[in-house]
Write a protein that binds this DNA or RNA. Structure first.
Length: 780
DNA sequence: AGCACGCCGACT
DNA sequence: GTCGGCGTGCTC
């Protein structure tokens, strides 16, 4: 009497842990397979995390699993390890992390069967072609007989495991390469000789045959060739680029590199070379390149496809939320099965499955967009570093303005720093001149327009216009004005659903909330006192656009922000206008700071950056420096020198001074000292308990209760974790939901995590709408 | 997450 | 006397 196998299955639920299911006799369940299981009175999708022989529950309480996904190879142990780590680190259930990481299109049992059928059909065609006389390599018939033997009878897999330690790996390889379908097809049509099967299975597998079958022949026949031959060797690398490429290529095992390169210093070329080296090492090797935003994928995709043309269209794929469900499923599977050698994607790609991930690159690693802000609040960058470490492969974090976290790691020697301080010879442009424009002085001298444009900036723009060059005005605030107000009674436009102002939008005459979907027509008179003289306060991109139409009537002005690019594809059309020179002045939010190199822009004007200098958010200035450095990098390429003018009331602020010197290192050292003195990250680790409720009292009451529970924990007793009092968020109400949070801090990551996991088990409902723990929050 | 069970106000 | 509110708890 053999014990039944029991599959431990993670389900997409709020709970931690897994649920045990019976595996029917004859069914071979393996960790990493998707399954459909009965759960309560419903049917759920899960992932087999483990297969064992016993359960904490009596067997009669276990249900059998319904459907096991055989349509593609199981998720690999290293992927399950990644998911397990992320779940533990971010205080979530494994299923909550694992299942959303698999595209929805693949989480459908009906498709598993369909997928398997279509795969068989595809492979049957391939098999037909391969079977033409002379088309098979010499050893192929032996391999094929072996494969047939193994796969025609499912039990053979188990039998073989005892005979040959690599049997499971072999099966995966064949499955990935399509041999499963091929053999199944052959078995059904050709009536395989069962005696032959029996003989082969009972014989020990010859090592040379096994090796031949695994990586090389089959995979290479169906996938693409190694790209080494086609690598473009033409561009001349700078010494710094060469040194960076050599360092990455020379890495053996895990190594984290911080590639600190100024804008235009050729970081991308370093990435491409590193990828080329990685792929040439091994016919199965795969590389992952993360970018912060979807709209940066097309240009990277273009360069990668051009450079790695030998991989074919399907060798380089994208993974991001902008893909259709079908595309995403197809690309995800291509990465999972190893057909895609290069994946370029946004943060969600950090959780993708690979067959043999061998190099990870995170471009613009400082970008806040790498932090997922809802659901599982993971840092894609941090997960990439963990993943590289776990896999024993190199990871490259690239930025002109590294995050202070990464910077400090490099200072401490945990990351290896690679510096690109010069632009390549082909692009001889000097770095732009950065100057501040003293707003107070201009105001005193009557040289500041009502719309906040200084005469210095306007004169500089007119010069550019006269020379046929372009200017770029950077203002991180869309709309016409951030608020409408009544001078007579003090009324201001406020959202009734959020603790935020309604932003004035002139284009369609609406007051609009930027936090919920609320909008209303601009009132003709004050709703409170009837005064008809309402005044827009402050300036947004629309207002600057309107002001320029008055003071520079001859200039062709274009505004690029979330409002002007709402329609799909319109952003690219607008950028094309700029590149084609159909625009003299470009006004934009941080949308314009990323990705696009504007060859004709020689002047960048920065409006209203000061608010970030004294923000309650201690990371605001770090972000501002990054943004300004990035937007400054738009000015002056090729042979045209660039100039950056920053309008400010604090012309001597150290941030602007460092920016003028192009001295990120100096600024980072200053910030580092500040953070160390103030006991802020990265010198301390933080976590938040966030609560949302219908009332502020409800949210706070939940947190007070949680605080009391925290204080009774053993792990809280040693004082290594500091608990702060619950507080309402600065923006306390969004969409009629009140938000509050409680901060935990510790110098010890381990102490913080021990406390969090113990605490999490004590937290319950309490009339709160939602609560969540956020580890390593970006904003407090 | 769903979907049950379970204990208190306004109705045929 | 019921119908139904959604608070708490379970699902292998």
């Amino acid at each position: 009497m053999t014990k039944p196998a029991i599959a431990r299955v993670a389900l997409d639920h709020l709970h931690a842990g897994t649920f045990d299911y019976l595996v029917a006799p004859g069914v071979h369940a393996r960790p990493g397979q998707l399954v459909s299981v009965p759960f309560g009175r419903r049917q759920c999708i899960g992932i087999v995390c483990d297969v064992g022989e016993d359960s904490a529950l009596p067997l009669e309480r276990l249900k059998p699993l319904t459907t096991l996904c055989e349509a593609w190879p199981p998720l690999r142990p290293e992927w399950l390890a990644l998911v397990g780590f992320a779940a533990g680190y971010y205080q979530r259930g494994i299923g909550e992390v694992a299942l959303p990481a698999v595209p929805a299109g693949l989480r459908d049992p009906k498709r598993w069967a369909r997928q398997q059928r279509s795969q068989r059909r595809y492979v049957a065609t391939a098999a037909g072609r391969a079977a033409l006389p002379g088309a098979l390599p010499a050893r192929a018939s032996a391999q094929r007989r072996l494969a047939e033997a193994l796969l025609a009878a499912p039990l053979a897999a188990d039998a073989l495991s005892s005979l040959h330690p690599r049997a499971a790996a072999l099966l995966d390889d064949w499955q990935a390469a399509g041999w499963v379908g091929m053999v199944t097809e052959a078995a059904s049509s050709d009536a395989v000789d069962q005696r032959l099967v029996a003989n082969l299975v009972s014989e020990p597998v010859a090592e040379p045959v096994a090796d031949a079958v695994t990586s090389a022949s089959v995979a290479r026949a169906l996938a693409s060739e190694a790209p080494a031959a086609s690598i473009d060797r033409l561009p001349t690398l700078t010494d710094e680029q060469r040194a960076a490429v050599d360092a990455i290529a020379g890495a053996s095992g895990f190594d984290a590199f911080l590639l600190h390169g100024i804008t235009g210093s050729g970081k991308t070329e370093v990435y491409l070379r590193a990828v080329a080296h990685c792929l040439a090492q091994d016919a199965d090797a795969q590389a992952l390149l993360l970018v912060p935003e979807i709209n940066l994928t097309p240009q990277f995709m273009g360069r990668l496809r051009a450079r790695f043309a030998a991989l074919g269209e399907h060798g380089v794929v994208a993974l991001h939320s902008g893909l259709s469900e079908g595309e995403r499923a197809a690309n995800w599977l291509a990465a999972h099965q190893g057909r895609a050698r290069i994946v370029i994607g946004t943060r969600l790609a950090a959780l993708a499955s690979f067959r043999k991930l061998s190099l990870l690159i995170v471009d613009e690693e400082h970008e806040a967009a790498y932090k997922q802000q809802e659901g599982l609040r993971y840092s894609a960058r941090d997960l990439c570093v963990w993943r590289a470490k776990h896999l024993g492969v190199p990871v490259v974090l690239g930025s002109a303005t590294p995050s202070l976290e990464s910077w400090c790691h490099a200072e401490q020697g945990r990351y290896r720093r690679l510096v690109l301080s010069r632009r390549p010879a082909a692009d001889t442009a000097a770095l732009p001149t950065v100057r501040t424009v003293d707003l107070d002085a201009h105001k005193r001298q009557g040289r500041l327009s009502g719309d906040g444009l200084s005469s210095t900036l306007l004169d500089a723009m007119r010069e550019r216009l006269a020379r046929g060059e372009q200017s770029l005005l950077f203002l991180n605030r869309r709309g016409y004005a951030p608020v409408l107000s009544c001078d007579a009674c003090g009324w201001v436009s406020e959202c009734t659903h959020c603790s935020a102002y309604l932003v004035l939008h002139r284009g369609d005459g609406m007051l609009r909330c930027h936090h919920c979907s609320w909008q209303e027509a601009i009132p003709h008179a004050c709703p409170s006192c009837g005064n008809i003289d309402l005044r827009p306060l402050g300036r947004g991109t629309q207002r600057i656009e309107a002001a320029l139409a008055e003071v520079m009537p001859d200039a062709r002005v274009l505004r690029i922000d979330a409002d002007s690019t709402r329609r799909r594809g319109s952003a690219e059309a607008l950028f094309a206008d700029v590149h084609a020179g159909r625009v003299d002045v470009l006004i934009g939010t941080n949308m314009v700071a990323k990705g696009h190199d504007f060859q004709r822009v020689t002047l960048v004007g920065v409006l209203n950056a000061d608010s970030a200098l004294f923000s309650h958010d201690f990371r605001a200035s770090e972000r501002l420096f990054g943004q300004l450095m990035q937007v400054a990098g738009r000015a002056g390429r090729a042979d045209l020198p660039g100039e950056v003018l920053i309008q400010t009331r604090y012309p001597h602020h150290p941030l602007y001074a460092a920016l003028a010197r192009h001295d990120y290192a100096g600024y980072a050292r200053m910030l580092t000292n500040e953070r160390r003195d103030a006991h802020l990250p990265p010198f301390i680790h933080q976590a938040l308990l966030k609560a949302e409720a219908r009332t502020l009292e409800g949210a706070l009451a939940f947190l007070e209760d949680a605080a009391a529970r925290f204080d009774t924990l053993d792990v809280a007793a040693d004082g290594r974790v500091v608990r702060y009092a619950p507080v309402p968020l600065a923006m306390v109400k969004i969409n009629d939901t009140y938000r509050a949070q409680l901060l935990l801090e510790s110098a010890s990551r381990q102490a913080l995590h021990l406390a969090l996991s113990a605490w999490r088990d004590t937290l319950g409902g309490h009339g709160v709408l939602r609560w969540a723990i956020e580890v390593d929050p970006l904003e407090i």
